[in-house]
Design a protein around this nucleic acid. Structure first.
Lengths: 214, 214
DNA sequence: ACCTGAACACCGTTCAAGT
DNA sequence: ACCTGAACACCGTTCAAGT
């Protein structure tokens, strides 16, 4: 643990997250991060074993930004609020999404929002086992919806993609895949938040109906 | 379009997919792929504009591997079969998952499984708009569940991660996040396929109850 | 004790040159 | 017409050397 340069794991990771937001994950090199921090590239290696360890720390920092809603509104509303808080943070750092897909929350600060969700369902009488199942399903839901939203999977996002069914001749598409030709144009018109809430309500209704007493 | 070397977009992309399976996405360099194909690295650039274009083609090839189930079993069973077919292919190429998260199906061959899903729900009387919503939700579900399964988000997969809530002192965890300490150990015991079906049934039941006549 | 420059073994991609 | 070697501007990381 070095001293003189005002460096620390937290300072480095915070600067790295800003850089990821600005120039993307591929743009974040150890050399570039070091330059932004006014140290040599090698200095970073006295704080993190390698680039992987740095990226994990960045991800933990991102999770720590999630602010769980105040408790007391009941499990359904608390989980809804929590899921929207997660969605907000993921959309605040769209270029960091692959990190979230790779590194689960691990530190006490990063797990705070998970703990809030567990408390909400446990307080409502859900068993620990079904609290675990609920977390798993909602984690998959957060990552899956954020992925299709952020990558512009359906043609409306800021992603690097063409609209769906693109690049192929429309006439050939109509011929070969008539149902895709009919339905695909409607995908771009769907509203992100509306679809997020729709699928979320489906999942929450099902879970709570089955596993929460009232 | 060159000739002499027996090269083609399809041959190159197929070899690239094999290499991704073997050595991962980061290991797949233009130089390494070229060596595996016995051509110079520069030859690849007469078939693909850049690495991005190559990776997109690899992804389309992967989507084309999805074999939709035979039609006629009703929308619920067809969608279930289709989702399992998707899951099988994603798990056959775990290191290619980030590609699936970035490049949507685009070619006629890659969109074949999407068309099969659309036909199943349209035949059941679902409107084109709700077929689009259904696809969006199921695409997010596939990607989200595959991500948490393959990355070992909950500590049982072959991923590069620790179990959840790891790296922190158990006593400190119990102190700071008692609900996490209680529930997290149960996450590793959940069965991938069981949870996949549980959440899938939830979604399918909800959608079909609302939007399919019978 | 803490930090760093040079070096090693790589990258993607451009471009002028080969056959 | 098709393919390629050399070169440019980068990487992550090791290691011996500086202060």
């Amino acid at each position: 643990m070095p001293k003189r340069t005002g460096m620390s794991e937290a300072v480095i990771a915070a600067r790295a997250l800003v850089l990821v937001d600005e120039i993307g994950l591929d743009g974040l090199s150890m050399r570039r991060l070091a330059t932004a921090l006014d140290v040599s590239a090698m200095t970073l290696y006295s704080y993190f074993a390698d680039r992987e360890a740095l990226l994990d720390a960045v991800t933990q920092l991102l999770y720590a930004e999630i602010v769980p809603p105040a408790p007391g509104a009941g499990p359904r509303e608390e989980l809804r609020g929590l899921m929207h808080a997660v969605r907000r943070v993921l959309h605040a750092h769209p270029r960091a999404l692959p990190l979230v897909s790779h590194y689960p929350p691990r530190t006490v600060e990063a797990l705070a929002f998970v703990n809030a969700g567990f408390r909400a369902v446990l307080d409502a009488g859900v068993s620990p086992l079904h609290a675990a199942r609920c977390y798993r399903a909602l984690a998959a839901y957060s990552i899956g919806t954020a992925t299709v939203e952020i990558s512009g999977y359906f043609g409306q996002g800021p992603g690097p993609h063409e609209p769906p069914g693109p690049g192929v001749d429309p006439v050939a598409l109509q011929e070969a895949l008539p149902e895709v030709a009919l339905v695909a144009p409607l995908l771009a018109g769907l509203d992100d938040v509306e679809e997020f809430d729709y699928g979320l309500d489906l999942t929450l209704d099902g879970f709570l109906r089955r596993h929460a007493p009232d």
